[in-house]
Structure formats: structure tokens, C-alpha cells
């Protein structure tokens, strides 16, 4: 039988890079990414799973990084805003957010982008209401959300047009 431990060894792939670390098992994934790996693009806005600022992708699914323990990610594949910016996966969304000023202070932005990306991956033709609903777990205090919805809508349109041509 395995013994419970307060410290454990984890091995995971973060943004394509294999990482091994000893972690305190109470450390959540975003704390781990920020404190151990210096990946500070994922933010803490509430640390109780409401605001979406800590959104990261684990094994292909976006999750609340504050509600996942680093220990649970042993063997997992984790992607963050840094990795997804580096590989161009978010490039069109980032461009559209920039063009429409769909961010002000930028604190919610990484989580907002990852959430938008998941919607687009699943539903190429969302209505404005569907976009709003999908983003409704991500808090932004600065914008009126409208520029964000506009940006996501524009990317949907552009991707559809590109697919059609």
C-alpha cells in the first residue's frame, strides 16, 4: 500500500517540457506553475474556483488551476498561456483581442483567451449568447465584456471563412 506523504515527486509535461519536481502536496497547480516554474501568466483572482483567472489546460481540457493540486498532475500534460502563446495556438484570438481592445488591465486575459479557445475548438459557430454563456465563468472587471465577445465572434468568423476557402 502506498503511504500518504506531504511531499511527493511529480513528473509532468508543461508546455512541452518534461518537468520533475518535489512538491508540497497541498500546493495547487497554479501556485506550482508560478512559484516553482516561474510561469506567472496564470493568475490568482479568487483561489476558490469562481473567477477563471487561473485557467490552464490539463490533458487537453481547460480547468481551474486553483482547484487542481500539482500532485494530481503527476503524469499530466499541462499547457499555459506562455506555451500556447509560444506555439501560435492562440495567435488569431490574441490579435483580435488586441485589435478590439478586449483587455484593459490584462489580469483576466490569459484565462479569457484559454476559455475562448476551448469554445472555438468545440463550436465553430457560436451565437453571441453562446459566447457570453461560455465566458460567463471568467470575471473581467475592466471591460464591459463586449469587446471580448466581439473579438471571439470575429475569430469564429475568420476561422470559418478560412476553412471555407
Amino acid at each position: 500500500m502506498r503511504e500518504p506523504a506531504e511531499i511527493m515527486e511529480v513528473k509532468l509535461v508543461v508546455n512541452g517540457e518534461t518537468i520533475s519536481r518535489r512538491v508540497a502536496v497541498r500546493q495547487n497547480l497554479v501556485d506550482f506553475l508560478r512559484e516553482e516554474l516561474g510561469l506567472t501568466g496564470s493568475h490568482f483572482g479568487c483561489e476558490h474556483g469562481v473567477c477563471g483567472a487561473c485557467t490552464v489546460v490539463v490533458d487537453g481540457e481547460m480547468v481551474r488551476g486553483c482547484l487542481v493540486l500539482a500532485a494530481q498532475c503527476d503524469g499530466a500534460r499541462v499547457e499555459t498561456i506562455e506555451g500556447l502563446s509560444g506555439n501560435g495556438a492562440l495567435a488569431d484570438l490574441q490579435r483580435a483581442f488586441h485589435e478590439r481592445n478586449a483587455l484593459q488591465c490584462g489580469f483576466c486575459t490569459p484565462g479569457m483567451l484559454l476559455t475562448a479557445a476551448e469554445l472555438l475548438a468545440r463550436n465553430p459557430r457560436p451565437s453571441r449568447e453562446e459566447i457570453r454563456a461560455h465566458l460567463s465563468g471568467n470575471y473581467c472587471r475592466c471591460t464591459g465584456y463586449q469587446a471580448i465577445v466581439d473579438a471571439v465572434e470575429a475569430v469564429c468568423r475568420a476561422r470559418r471563412e478560412e476553412a471555407a476557402s
Binding site: M1, R2, P4, A5, E6, V25, R26, H48
Partner: peptide, 25 residues
């Protein structure tokens, strides 16, 4: 707002899970 300290274990089988539950109640 950080979780208090605890120990973590990830059993590989139901039998092991029951043993852990029995031990730590």
C-alpha cells in the same frame, strides 16, 4: 488563501483505497 498541510495518496485499486480509508478513518 493556501490549503492547510495534509498528506496525499493516490491508490491504484479499490482494495488499496479501502485499506487507506480504514487506516485513516
Amino acid at each position: 488563501m493556501k490549503a492547510p498541510a495534509f498528506a496525499y495518496v493516490k491508490p491504484a485499486s479499490l482494495a488499496e483505497t479501502f485499506e487507506l480509508i480504514e487506516r485513516y478513518g
